[in-house]
Simulated scan of single mutants.
Amino acid sequence: MKLTKKTHACVRLDKDGRTLVLDPGAFSEADAAAGADAILVTHEHPDHFDEGRLRSALEADPAVELWTLRSVAEKLSAAFPGRVHTVGHGDTFTAAGFDVQVHGELHAVIHPDLPRVTNVGFLVDGGRVFHPGDALTVPEHPVETLLAPVQAPWNKISEVIEYVREVRPQRVYDIHDALLTDLARPIYDTHLGNLGGADHGRLAPGTSAEV
């Protein structure tokens, strides 16, 4: 399976000539979902869910389907009947030839005064890749490649390190990093690499790795 990093929280997975795109939000490239056979969205925040771009992707190819939680599905399902699927914690499905398990229910706490939105993570192909969205969800399943949200208003590096230790993946690649400056990246790389307990890598947008 080829994993291609797009800007911020979006990744593309390619296998057997088919493409699965996760979280092509407003911080990612405008064409991040182009050519996708299926799209997964973890939650409603605009850096993960860009309604206009998703509508364009679904309109451009009538074979493309979307799997997401209710708050996102409700915005699109009427316009694309039968192609927008609502999923939640514990669900399993197959999208574009990828087997997917859904883990998690809530976004991480940004501040106690702010209500928490729903959030789901997607475990792909029996643990080959796990994208948690905006939460530090630990799936009840071994994970080979963890996509770790390394910088956000709701986390700090010590929490990310402990998260990696708890998941115990074979390898970690950074996501949720659009607001992380080049000046700070070596600090994050050093701490995650030295303390996380897993092989840590960082992919520049547009670059790929086999997982």
Rank of each mutant, 00 (worst) to 15 (best):
R70F: 07
R70H: 13
L58K: 04
D50A: 14
D61N: 15
A36C: 11
G35D: 08
L69K: 02
H8P: 00
E59D: 14
E65W: 01
T42S: 15
D61K: 12
T68I: 03
T7L: 14
D23C: 11
E29W: 06
T4M: 12
E51R: 14
F49K: 00
L40R: 01
W67H: 11
L58M: 15
G17F: 09
R70W: 09
V11Y: 03
A32W: 03
R18V: 07
D31G: 05
K5C: 07
S71Q: 14
S28A: 15
L66H: 01
L22A: 09
D61Q: 11
T4G: 07
E74Y: 09
R55M: 10
R12T: 11
V21E: 01
W67Y: 15
S71E: 15
L22N: 04
A36I: 10
A63M: 10
L66T: 01
H48C: 12
D47Y: 06
R12D: 10
K15W: 08
T19I: 09
D50I: 05
F27M: 09
H45R: 13
D50C: 14
F27N: 11
A30E: 15
D23H: 05
S28T: 12
R53A: 12
H45Q: 13
A9S: 15
L69Q: 03
H8S: 12
T7G: 01
E74Q: 14
A30Q: 13
R12P: 01
S71Y: 06
K5Y: 04
D31Y: 09
D16P: 04
A34T: 09
R18D: 03
T7E: 11
H43R: 06
T19E: 07
P62C: 08
L54C: 05
C10R: 00
A9C: 13
D16M: 09
A34M: 06
L58W: 03
E44S: 14
T42Q: 13
D37F: 08
A57F: 06
D50E: 13
P62E: 15
V72K: 00
D61C: 12
E65Q: 13
L69G: 02
S28C: 10
E44N: 10
G25E: 02
G17M: 09
L3A: 10
A34V: 04
G52C: 12
A60I: 08
A34H: 05
V64W: 00
E29Q: 15
L40G: 03
A26G: 07
A36Y: 06
E59S: 13
G52E: 10
K15F: 07
C10L: 06
E74H: 12
K5V: 06
H8V: 03
L66V: 09
R12H: 08
V21D: 00
A32L: 06
D47W: 04
D14A: 15
C10S: 07
L58P: 01
P24L: 06
R12G: 10
A36L: 11
L58E: 03
V21H: 02
L40I: 05
E44L: 13
D50M: 07
L3D: 01
L3V: 13
V41W: 00
E29T: 04
K5E: 05
R70Q: 14
L3G: 02
L13F: 11
P46R: 13
A33I: 08
V41S: 01
H43V: 01
R55C: 12
A9Q: 05
L54G: 02
E65C: 13
R55W: 08
A60T: 12
E59Q: 14
C10E: 02
